[in-house]
Amino acid sequence: MLPVLQIGPLSIRTPGLVLLAGLWAALEMASREGVRRGIDGNKVYNLGFYALVAGVLGARMGFVLFHSLLYIRITPLSRFVGSVFSPTPGTEVPWVGVLLAAGVAAYLIWRWRLDPLALADSFAPAFAIMGIAIGLADLLSGNMYGMETRLPWAIDLWGAARHPTQLYLALACAANLAVLLRLRSKEDALPPGSLFQVSLVILSLAVLLIEPLRADSPVLIAGVRTWQVIALGVLVAALAGFAWRAPAAQPDGGP
């Protein structure tokens, strides 16, 4: 864990740095993958960037709206504005950000007449890269920490030897990226959108397996872990997507 890197008078927040690097790499990758599929790379890059900005702003505005009674009490105006727009971690409502980012992405896909399935395939490796960055950033900040264990690869965190759940996530995303890059060579034989669906299957399986090893896992009800429920929903949706697009019967002459 190394949340702050002190270089002389300069305090660098390492998780933010890793996330920024991951974001840059992810957008670059998506852009190149878009070009491979005949989509304008700049449009892919910009779509990712605008969706991200919308997501960040939406998450913050969601927090401000849901806690508006707290915000309107802040005086004077300069303090109110500072509170609304200051980059204070922990003042976000993520699902509002996700909804707004999805809305902006959908609008740009329609406006720029992009093929959504080819675009999804282009973004699949980018999501894997962001997953790696999120895992490493959480490792540096000490978030998403694991349960105590005596396994030889345990890491010392928050005063105990723990499962490196952040590294498990990063490794699962790296494996996901490797699978996607390998499948890419066979992409012509697969229907558009398949890489994205495969990516969703791998990631949701990883979350289903890793989440029980987390010590700070959010719980929905009766001990059921929130992220496992979301992951199962995504897994079923991705598999149902395969079912929906598969032929009703095997073509004649097939084995």
Partner: peptide
Amino acid sequence: MPKTRLDWIVITIVAL
């Protein structure tokens, strides 16, 4: 590799 819709429906239900 599953080929038909039925194969995928079975896999989806089993996964669920």
